[in-house]
Structures are given as C-alpha cells and as structure tokens.
Write a protein that binds this DNA or RNA. Structure first.
Length: 290
DNA sequence: AGCCAGGATAGAC
DNA sequence: GTCTATCATGGC
C-alpha cells in the first residue's frame, strides 16, 4: 500500500511515540501486533502481509485531518512554527500492550536506549517474521515475559524497571483488561492504568495518547516541561503544566504536545537554548540524534 | 568524568 | 494531599 504524501514518515516513526521500527537497507522494518511490515522510503510503499491493509491504515491513523486543530491555534507563534515543520506527523494507533511495555521502559530513560532495549526484548522473546528483505521480531506477550522471568529483563538492561514490567505482565496475564481502555473514558483509563506497577500519570498519558485514541492525554516529560516553562511560562507540578497545556491547546492538546515535543528536540526553538545554555554547550545538543 | 534521560515509588511531612 | 531521595543503565 502507498502512504499518502502528506504523512511525514520520519517525524511519525522517530519522534518517540513508537520503538517498533528500525532503519534497514533501503527502508524501515517494523512490526505491530504480530504483523510485519517493510517501508520502502523512496517509493513510500508499505509492504504488508496479505489481508492486513486495514490494520495498518488504522495504525498510521491515515484519513485524519489535523488542519482544524491548528487553524484554531493560528495565533500561537510556537505552535505555528512547529506545525510548519512537522505538521505531517500523525499520532499512531499502536497495540496497547506493546505501547504500555515500551513506556514502562521509558521511565527516566533516553529514547535511543529505549529503542535498544525494546529491540533486544523482541529479539529474545518474540518470534521472527519476514518483513520484505528484513527479519523482524514480534513483541512478546505477557506470558512470554513471565516465562523468561524477571532476571532476563535485567539482562536486557531494564535496570530497576525490570520488576515493574514483570509485575505488569503478571497483572495482564491474570486478567487486567487492556482492551477496555479505549472505551472507558479518559479519567477511568488513567485510574486503571496507574494501578499497574511502573505506570504513573506520564506513562499512562503516553499509552492513552499513542494507543487508545485519547487525544486529550498530555504527557509531561522533560522536553514538554521545558517547552511549557520557557515558551509559555508554565512550571511547577506536572498536573499544573498539563492543565495549562489543555487550556492553551484545547481538547486535542495531546496532538499539539507531540508536535511541540518533536519540534523542540529537533531544534526548532532556539529560545530553549537561550534559556538553558547547557543545551547549546555541544554543537548537536539541540538536535539529538533520533 | 559527570550529567542526563518521554519517571515511578516509598516515605516524610 | 505535596515534596524528596533513590533507583540501574548507558548515551553523550
């Protein structure tokens, strides 16, 4: 299947909302929910398994239109700049379990290393699948993680997050219903998710935004905090920063958050460096290698 | 070499 | 309820 021209593939797949894709010879290889895919970046062709086109169309959230969101915010200079640079980014619709695991691993961690850990987790506990010229590995289910044990998670480099992921795998294996989250409503979904070990409000917001369709979820991490403090004068506890984000950006604040997050990391806002010179000490500090 | 990272947690208050 | 020290690992 062909990906539409307006979709910014790089910004969508390498902006820290998914860790399921890796760069291959002439494209990108990825896997979700046991289905492998290979993306030829030159032709923008997504090579998928037979009968999974609808799944991938939903995964990439094709057919949505962020135009109205940003039209309403046309008076916001920062949002406008971010949208001009990365308006082709789309919030994905990822499998809930895989997103939950990835963001438990993300806690106090960096994007490069999270990707490495998730890759090793799949290679060790998942199953190989053919993705065009590449081999990818499926994301292990909770049972597979329980089978391998907590020590295996330590060996993969999870550190103190190993018991968190193991505990969450156990809860899900014992009946915690992830499939209900998209329809319980945002507040209920947060309450349910934050009962799992290793899941606080920030991780819950990432799961709800990137895999459950809740565009009001507003994850507050270091970069979003930086953006909100320097560009919008909002600081303090994350609940307060989040409230300010909702007030500024509206009911789809999560979408705006993700584009601001990526724009900030890519150096679209030199204001951030001026306010925090440490970011500018090394030449590439404002433009992290994604 | 030392600071940082898509934070969560238990404990103090 | 809010604030704080602590946590394992490796990227840079």
């Amino acid at each position: 299947m062909l990906l539409p021209e307006e979709l910014d593939i790089e910004a969508t797949l390498f902006s820290g909302q998914t860790f399921a894709w890796r760069r291959a010879a002439d494209g990108l290889a990825g896997c979700a929910d046991g289905r492998a895919a290979y993306l030829d970046t030159e032709s923008r062709t997504l090579l998928v398994e037979e009968g999974t086109e609808a799944f991938w169309r939903r995964y990439f959230n094709l057919g949505c239109d962020y135009g109205p969101i940003f039209k309403k915010l046309a008076g916001d200079a920062y949002v406008s700049r971010a949208f001009a640079a990365y308006g082709g980014m789309r919030i994905l619709n990822q499998p809930v379990w895989e997103t939950l695991c990835a963001f438990i691993v993300s806690a106090n961690n960096n994007i490069k290393r999270i990707g490495g850990i998730i890759g090793r987790l799949c290679a060790m506990m998942g199953e190989p699948r053919r993705a065009g010229p590449e081999t990818v590995y499926t994301f292990p289910g909770p049972e597979a993680i329980l089978r391998e044990g907590e020590a295996a998670l330590y060996a993969l480099g999870l550190g103190y997050r190993a018991p968190y992921l193991y505990g969450t795998a156990k809860a899900v294996a014992e009946g915690f219903d992830l499939s209900a989250l998209p329809r319980t409503g945002y507040e209920n979904a947060v309450r349910a998710l934050t009962r799992l070990p290793g899941v606080g409000e920030k991780v819950a917001d990432c799961v709800l935004l990137f895999s459950c369709g809740y565009s009001m979820a507003f994850p507050v991490d270091v970069w979003v905090r930086r953006v909100m403090r320097v560009l919008y004068g909002a600081e303090g506890p994350s609940a307060k920063v989040k409230a300010k984000g909702r007030a500024l950006f509206g009911e789809d604040a999560g979408v705006v958050q993700q584009i601001l997050f990526h724009a900030a990391r890519m150096g679209v806002f030199p204001e951030l460096c001026r306010a925090d010179p440490a970011l500018c000490d090394s030449p590439s500090a404002c433009v992290p290698n994604v």
